[in-house]
Lab assay of single mutants.
Amino acid sequence: WKITIYDQENFQGKRMEFTSSCPNVSERSFDNVRSLKVESGAWIGYEHTSFCGQQFILERGEYPRWDAWSGSNAYHIERLMSFRPICSA
Protein backbone atom coordinates (compact mmCIF):
# COMPACT_ATOMS: atom_id res chain seq x y z
CA TRP A 1 0.00 0.00 0.00
CA LYS A 2 1.16 3.50 -0.79
CA ILE A 3 -0.53 6.89 -0.60
CA THR A 4 0.93 10.37 -1.17
CA ILE A 5 -0.75 13.37 0.42
CA TYR A 6 -0.37 17.08 -0.40
CA ASP A 7 -1.26 20.18 1.61
CA GLN A 8 -2.44 22.07 -1.51
CA GLU A 9 -4.91 21.25 -4.26
CA ASN A 10 -3.69 19.80 -7.57
CA PHE A 11 -0.74 17.98 -5.99
CA GLN A 12 1.07 21.16 -4.99
CA GLY A 13 2.81 22.22 -1.80
CA LYS A 14 4.23 19.95 0.84
CA ARG A 15 3.97 16.22 0.12
CA MET A 16 4.45 13.10 2.18
CA GLU A 17 4.28 9.40 1.33
CA PHE A 18 2.78 6.73 3.58
CA THR A 19 2.74 2.94 3.44
CA SER A 20 0.83 2.49 6.70
CA SER A 21 -1.86 4.16 8.81
CA CYS A 22 -1.74 7.82 9.82
CA PRO A 23 -4.06 8.62 12.76
CA ASN A 24 -3.40 12.38 12.66
CA VAL A 25 -1.92 14.31 9.71
CA SER A 26 -1.38 17.37 11.91
CA GLU A 27 1.29 15.40 13.79
CA ARG A 28 3.13 15.33 10.44
CA SER A 29 2.88 19.14 10.08
CA PHE A 30 -0.16 19.06 7.79
CA ASP A 31 -3.14 21.30 8.57
CA ASN A 32 -5.27 19.27 6.20
CA VAL A 33 -5.01 17.04 3.14
CA ARG A 34 -5.99 19.03 0.03
CA SER A 35 -5.08 16.46 -2.65
CA LEU A 36 -3.74 12.93 -2.75
CA LYS A 37 -2.60 10.06 -4.95
CA VAL A 38 -3.27 6.43 -4.12
CA GLU A 39 -0.33 4.62 -5.69
CA SER A 40 -1.32 1.12 -4.58
CA GLY A 41 -3.89 -0.65 -2.46
CA ALA A 42 -7.16 0.76 -1.20
CA TRP A 43 -7.43 3.13 1.75
CA ILE A 44 -10.08 4.61 4.01
CA GLY A 45 -9.83 8.34 4.67
CA TYR A 46 -11.52 9.94 7.67
CA GLU A 47 -12.89 13.40 8.31
CA HIS A 48 -11.32 13.62 11.79
CA THR A 49 -8.20 12.39 13.54
CA SER A 50 -8.04 8.92 15.14
CA PHE A 51 -10.06 7.39 12.27
CA CYS A 52 -13.31 9.14 13.26
CA GLY A 53 -16.08 10.91 11.38
CA GLN A 54 -17.19 10.55 7.78
CA GLN A 55 -15.33 7.82 5.89
CA PHE A 56 -14.13 7.89 2.29
CA ILE A 57 -13.05 4.88 0.23
CA LEU A 58 -9.88 5.80 -1.64
CA GLU A 59 -9.03 3.49 -4.52
CA ARG A 60 -5.98 3.67 -6.75
CA GLY A 61 -5.95 6.97 -8.62
CA GLU A 62 -5.52 10.71 -8.31
CA TYR A 63 -7.68 13.02 -6.19
CA PRO A 64 -6.75 16.63 -7.07
CA ARG A 65 -9.34 18.28 -4.78
CA TRP A 66 -11.41 17.36 -1.73
CA ASP A 67 -14.57 16.95 -3.83
CA ALA A 68 -12.87 14.15 -5.79
CA TRP A 69 -13.01 11.89 -2.73
CA SER A 70 -15.97 13.51 -0.97
CA GLY A 71 -18.29 12.96 -3.94
CA SER A 72 -21.92 13.95 -3.59
CA ASN A 73 -22.34 13.64 0.18
CA ALA A 74 -25.30 15.46 1.69
CA TYR A 75 -22.86 17.77 3.46
CA HIS A 76 -19.55 18.54 1.82
CA ILE A 77 -16.47 17.70 3.82
CA GLU A 78 -13.33 19.59 2.90
CA ARG A 79 -11.27 17.84 5.54
CA LEU A 80 -9.32 14.59 5.63
CA MET A 81 -7.33 14.20 8.84
CA SER A 82 -6.53 10.48 9.11
CA PHE A 83 -6.35 7.41 6.89
CA ARG A 84 -5.43 3.74 6.88
CA PRO A 85 -5.05 0.96 4.34
CA ILE A 86 -7.82 -1.55 3.78
CA CYS A 87 -6.31 -4.95 4.39
CA SER A 88 -7.83 -8.04 2.83
CA ALA A 89 -7.46 -11.53 4.22
Results as ranks from 00 to 15, higher is better:
24 N>M: 03
42 A>F: 07
32 N>R: 10
83 F>A: 03
19 T>W: 08
6 Y>F: 11
76 H>W: 07
11 F>A: 02
6 Y>V: 00
61 G>D: 02
28 R>S: 10
52 C>Y: 08
76 H>D: 13
32 N>G: 08
86 I>E: 10
39 E>I: 12
54 Q>V: 12
39 E>G: 08
50 S>K: 15
79 R>I: 05
47 E>N: 06
30 F>Q: 00
73 N>W: 05
67 D>W: 07
55 Q>N: 09
30 F>K: 01
47 E>L: 02
46 Y>W: 04
23 P>F: 05
12 Q>T: 11
58 L>E: 03
8 Q>R: 10
2 K>N: 07
18 F>R: 01
20 S>V: 09
68 A>D: 11
77 I>G: 15
34 R>W: 01
69 W>N: 07
60 R>I: 12
84 R>I: 05
51 F>I: 02
35 S>A: 02
79 R>T: 15
25 V>G: 02
9 E>R: 04
47 E>V: 04
14 K>S: 10
18 F>N: 02
76 H>K: 14
52 C>Q: 14
53 G>P: 02
58 L>M: 09
5 I>L: 09
61 G>M: 00
31 D>K: 08
27 E>A: 10
37 K>G: 00
2 K>V: 05
33 V>H: 02
41 G>W: 02
11 F>Q: 02
23 P>M: 09
36 L>N: 05
2 K>H: 05
40 S>M: 07
75 Y>H: 11
14 K>P: 02
4 T>D: 07
16 M>G: 08
88 S>F: 06
89 A>G: 15
2 K>S: 05
48 H>I: 00
55 Q>W: 09
79 R>D: 05
39 E>T: 15
81 M>E: 06
83 F>V: 03
33 V>D: 02
74 A>E: 14
67 D>H: 13
89 A>Q: 15
84 R>W: 02
44 I>T: 06
27 E>N: 08
82 S>R: 01
54 Q>M: 14
62 E>K: 05
34 R>I: 02
55 Q>D: 13
38 V>S: 02
14 K>C: 06
26 S>Y: 10
20 S>Y: 07
60 R>H: 13
53 G>T: 03
46 Y>F: 13
19 T>N: 08
83 F>Q: 00
43 W>L: 02
59 E>S: 14
5 I>D: 01
49 T>D: 11
87 C>K: 15
1 W>D: 13
23 P>Y: 06
78 E>S: 14
87 C>A: 13
75 Y>A: 15
35 S>D: 01
64 P>G: 06
18 F>T: 02
45 G>L: 09
59 E>V: 12
50 S>Y: 07
60 R>P: 14
12 Q>N: 10
88 S>P: 14
85 P>D: 00
54 Q>I: 04
42 A>E: 15
76 H>N: 11
42 A>P: 12
25 V>T: 06
86 I>H: 15
57 I>D: 05
52 C>H: 14
75 Y>K: 15
68 A>Y: 14
15 R>L: 06
88 S>V: 07
78 E>C: 12
77 I>C: 13
16 M>W: 06
40 S>P: 04
78 E>V: 13
21 S>P: 13
34 R>Q: 07
62 E>W: 06
17 E>T: 12
15 R>C: 14
72 S>G: 13
50 S>P: 03
74 A>I: 12
67 D>G: 09
66 W>Q: 12
43 W>G: 03
56 F>T: 14
26 S>R: 09
60 R>D: 08
